[in-house]
């Protein structure tokens, strides 16, 4: 999912998928996160940043 906006205070990000669906995602495991980052999301938790390795 692509990051649209980050709420640093709550550790959450607003993300969108390829179909335009939006979802609030927990980002504690992949910090730091910035808009336009691509995240691998499982059960509303980002578990990896795509292309970061």
């Amino acid at each position: 999912m692509r990051v649209l906006a980050v709420d640093d205070e709550r550790g959450l990000a607003l993300c969108t998928d390829g179909q335009g669906r939006r979802e609030t995602v927990e980002i504690a495991l992949v910090l730091p996160v910035a808009p336009s980052d691509e995240l691998l999301v499982h059960a509303a938790t980002a578990i990896a940043k795509e292309g970061s390795q």
Partner: peptide
């Protein structure tokens, strides 16, 4: 799957 898998895993996830 190098684009997301680090050899040592996700340390923050393992810690929590």
């Amino acid at each position: 799957y190098k684009r997301v898998v680090p050899y040592e895993g996700n340390r923050a996830a393992l810690a929590v």
